[in-house]
Amino acid sequence: MSASAETQAKSPRAEPTRKPFSLPLSERMIAMPLVLPLLTFAVILVLWETSTRVFSIPSFILPAPTRIIEGFGAVTPARWSAHVWATLRVALIGYLVAIAVSLPIAIGLAKSRLLSRAFYPLLVVIQSVPVVAVAPIIIVVLGTDDAPRVVITFMIAFFPLVVSMTTGLMATPPELIELSRSLRAPQYREITQIRLPYAIPYIFSGLKISVTLAVIGAVVAEFVAADVGIGFFIQFSTSMFRLPQAWAGLVVLVAMSLILFQAVSLAQRLFFPWSLPRERR
């Protein structure tokens, strides 16, 4: 169909039969948001597969996609789901704790210049601490159950949340704050009925960044101390030189991050459609 459109476009006599506003192929591809990236991905996979075969690249350097798929079979599905659940649980709990902690902090920072002057530098210092380096210390302090892993996840996920929430809470048009003051409404309603809803677009950009960071946090924690979880599985597999199955673990992590990211996006589209630009509602 696209080919006929191309030939018709070249022949001036065929003009009347041409569909109005028929776009060139490249623009029609842009109009289909899924096709192009999937196509690119497929091409990369094929190149990857053929190059590993043609150049006989050993699987511990770069396993072929088919070897990675075989890697999924190295462990039983029950074991996989145990690993996935362990990582997902830590990531989600750490994420929720980060949200619960960052919201009151953001409200404090946005409402009070004093608090913001006093605590913002401290937050930046905390954020500047390399969490990977602190992780072993936290594990020693808090033991080896979920608690230290949740704390590590929290530490990685919470800073973007505080920043985006604070920015959002301060983004309210000053006129609406004046309206609130002119009505002599209770202070908390200024937060709940004006500032927080106004911050929704900002909050969601923070939520999207942090949800993928939470997965990273959970994996980092598992690298340091765990006996289950995808992070543990990858480390264990590489130490046994089973690279294809380590890659399989990586694929699972990517899928987990993508699904969580999409879940947050979907929540925004479902519950706060007004907070999205028009064309994405």
Partner: peptide, 12 residues
């Protein structure tokens, strides 16, 4: 009652 330069309505 106050009317501002921009309507400053609640977008939601």
């Amino acid at each position: 009652g106050i009317v501002f330069q921009q309507a400053t309505l609640l977008p939601w």
